[in-house]
């Protein structure tokens, strides 16, 4: 018998999509079979945040997890002409990126799962573009979060934005997580391209277009489940509850001992909460 390679089950591939007339080469990781779940990372990071869920044999027996790196993030390239461009993410670009990925990857009735800015977009999709999705898992998600920091700190010629960004987001990581995973979570921010975290935060901290509109989300056929960690200082449990209370039929899970990056910073504690969330999607 010949030796088999000791690969993890996660595979990575590339797909090209067009968003607002521009072409983007997007890196996508995938693992598992069954009900598709498309998983989006936080600002300033990439699909590696989902590595533990995607390597979970019990979950991948019934779910097919698909985790893209958003354009400009991870192994996805920025668009042609990026070198003279100020990256500023918008709701419109983010929503269209998600919808084009679902189409390009031929996903049928996927569950949407997203964290932080990915959670915000879950709510945007649930309100305005629910059709392609089975349901929405919105992690560390709220209707609006104004910045409690100066986002311009993270893109300066005289300092390393990634190192500063990682040191700041460590405020959003709970001390209970394994030390190695807390640092792995920060590493992605350290690696983030120049100006990318700032450009993500521009969207996350300025777009208030959901305020007052959450009551329009129809959860009767498309469940919305919101999850929040007790150590999240950016989207606090109070923020998540305020958000869930405005969505008729939405459910809320508060996770003890977890911060803003649940699936990455403390996978063991996050897992049962995520299993519960998947079950709520029907």
């Amino acid at each position: 018998m010949s030796a088999q390679p000791a690969y993890e089950p996660i595979i990575g591939r590339y797909v090209t999509i067009e968003v607002q007339g521009r072409s983007y080469r997007v890196f996508v990781e995938e693992a598992g079979q069954g009900q598709p779940v498309i998983c989006f990372h936080t600002a300033g990071a990439d699909s590696r945040q989902w590595r533990h869920i995607m390597n979970d044999a019990e979950l991948t027996a019934n779910y097919r997890f698909i985790a893209p790196d958003m354009p400009w993030h991870g192994k996805s390239l920025p668009p042609e002409g990026f070198e003279e461009e100020e990256y500023l993410l918008t709701t419109e670009v983010y929503v269209e990126t998600v919808l084009k990925l679902v189409e390009a990857l031929a996903l049928e009735n996927p569950i949407y799962a997203g964290c932080s800015m990915g959670g915000r977009i879950a709510l945007q999709l649930a309100l305005n573009n629910p059709e392609p999705f089975k349901g929405f898992i919105a992690i560390e998600a709220s209707d609006f979060q104004p910045a409690w920091y100066d986002i311009d700190w993270f893109h300066r010629p005289d300092a390393h934005g990634g190192e500063m960004g990682a040191a700041l987001v460590s405020a959003n990581i709970a001390p209970q997580g394994p030390k190695a995973e807390r640092w792995n979570t920060q590493w992605m921010f350290m690696q983030s391209g120049p100006g990318v975290f700032r450009g993500d935060l521009n969207f996350y901290t300025k777009d208030d277009s959901l305020v007052g509109k959450l009551g329009g989300i129809d959860t009767s056929n498309k469940p919305v489940h919101i999850m929040v960690g007790t150590y999240d200082m950016t989207c606090t449990p109070e923020d998540a509850k305020r958000t869930a209370d405005q969505i008729p039929g939405a459910t809320l899970a508060v996770m003890d001992g977890i911060g803003h990056f649940p699936m990455s910073e403390n996978p063991a504690t996050f897992r049962p909460h995520f299993v519960e969330a998947l079950a709520k999607m029907g």
Binding site: W148, L168, S170, A171, A174, Q176
Partner: peptide, 15 residues
Amino acid sequence: PIPEPSFHDIFGFVK
């Protein structure tokens, strides 16, 4: 050793 939420980081004092 394990600070409670909001006391785990210096920015928690501010927030």
